[in-house]
Design a protein around this nucleic acid. Structure first.
Length: 427
DNA sequence: TCTGGGGTCCTAGGACCC
DNA sequence: TCTGGGGTCCTAGGACCC
């Protein structure tokens, strides 16, 4: 038995190639052979690229306005991000994975860790069948990396994708193989090592994943902390990272967005914040929570190349509540504290924290019951669910339109809106 | 009132992820 | 002129307590 045989436990990282682009292509055959990129909210910057676009040297996060000309001259199809479509496709993807593995741990919208035990040498073939099934059921292309730890599985997946391995699966099977893989992987590509850490690592002569894996753990812990120690162990093949389960109730809930165009009026900011209160409260109620602390922040427009720091204000809410109207009143008061007339702003957000479970919130002193609006809140939610988000909103959200998103290149919601169902023509 | 050390709890901020 | 959003985990430092 070699050291890779952890009671036969293996983890596979399966992720969809260029997820957002692949979703756009799934329902639009005319762009399957074309270069495609997807841009962020407000059509701000590039957040997904097809292989052709990557080959043009266009980097992740490039502002759209800088490359409009280039994209047009190369015939690149641009799409605004369509999260309704992507979330629905993500659910279909995960449904498919669950047919092949009893223990699926969703990590992000397009990635999941699959835990297998006792598969032996048949795991590679099993994952190849899984990938073929995903392709058939959803038309999404994906790859898998298999190893004893999540960090190594990530590394294997990286090469499964970039080397175009047949079948789309790469498994690290022994010590020699691990060394080969890690020696070819720049340390920047290691899961958990970002740009800052990799710069500091370079000063110590650590430039590949293999260098990092061979580093002295106590030294690394002292210099970089426990997160780095765990990364090193994972690279060595010792499972050391645990993920918080996705269905765990959130400790804090945030809703924020950059405006479609600059906002300078109090009512404009309030309109945006009221919208975020509604969205945040939907999430809060979905996890049966109540918030005890509301924080708002507004960010002034950038000065030249530098982004201005955001300004924030918070207030405790006692007793904790899930009522948007109560929260809205708090938000209004906070905005009054930090709003400066004459300044222009680019972004606003609302954060709910100190979240408790709604049915065991402390009642306030003397048991003064706050007005019970749960009936009306459920009613509003039901209307919005049936007729679409925004069918009923607080008056404040309608006072100004400046904050609304710019989405010039939006594709239809093929899978979630009857009006947008694709039409098949038989000729 | 001063002296001190150690523990806990909270918050802000950094780094990272996709 | 135009540069995303939502989250996690960890650490340091301050306040408070005994």
């Amino acid at each position: 038995m070699n050291r890779w045989d952890y009671n036969g436990k293996q983890v596979a990282l399966v992720d969809v190639n260029n997820f957002y682009v692949s979703c756009e292509r799934a329902f639009n055959p005319t762009i399957r052979k074309k270069a495609v990129c997807v841009v962020s909210n407000n059509d701000g910057c590039v957040i997904a690229r097809s292989a052709e676009v990557k080959a043009m040297g266009i980097k992740m996060g490039t502002p759209l306005f800088q490359i409009r000309g280039l994209l047009a001259s190369r015939g690149v199809e641009v799409r605004s991000s369509n999260y309704t479509l992507y979330h629905d496709m993500s659910e279909r993807f995960i449904d498919c994975l669950e047919q092949f593995c009893p223990s699926v741990e969703q990590y992000s919208i397009d990635e999941s860790f699959l835990h297998f035990e006792g598969f032996g040498s048949g795991l590679d073939a099993h994952c190849q069948r899984l990938i073929a099934a995903v392709r058939q059921c959803t038309s999404l292309p994906c790859c898998a990396g298999i190893a004893p730890t999540r960090t190594l599985a990530k590394a294997a997946n990286h090469f499964a994708k970039t080397l175009g391995v047949p079948g789309g699966v790469l498994q690290i099977t022994d010590e020699y193989h691990r060394q080969q893989i890690l020696q070819q992987l720049p340390v920047t590509e290691v899961w958990g090592v970002g740009s800052r850490l990799s710069k500091r690592l370079a000063c110590l002569g650590i430039t590949t994943a293999w260098d990092l894996s061979a580093s002295h753990i106590p030294t690394m812990r002292k210099a970089f902390g426990v997160v780095m120690e765990r990364t090193v162990r994972e690279l060595q093949g010792i499972p050391s990272v645990d993920l918080a389960p996705m269905d765990k109730p959130k400790d804090e809930i945030m809703s924020g967005r950059t405006f479609g165009s600059k906002v300078s009026s109090y009512t404009g900011l309030m309109a945006s914040l009221a919208n975020h209160v509604t969205l945040a409260c939907e999430k809060l109620r979905a996890q049966n929570g109540a918030t005890g602390r509301v924080t708002i922040s507004i960010q002034p427009t950038r000065q030249g190349d530098y982004s201005s720091p955001s300004v924030s204000a918070y207030s405790e809410v006692r007793p904790a509540t899930d009522d948007p109207q109560t929260i809205l009143a708090v938000v209004r008061q906070c905005l009054g504290e930090i709003y400066r007339e004459g300044k222009t702003y680019r972004r606003a957000s609302v954060m709910l924290s100190s979240i408790e479970t709604a049915n065991k919130t402390q009642s306030d002193l003397f048991g003064l019951a706050t007005e019970d609006r749960s009936g009306i809140n459920h009613c509003l939610e039901a209307i919005n669910q049936r007729f679409g988000r925004g069918a009923v909103t607080f008056a404040a959200t309608k006072l100004s339109k400046d904050w609304e998103m710019k989405r010039e290149y939006l594709s239809p919601s093929y899978t979630t809106n009857v009006k947008d169902l694709p039409i098949a023509k038989i000729s």
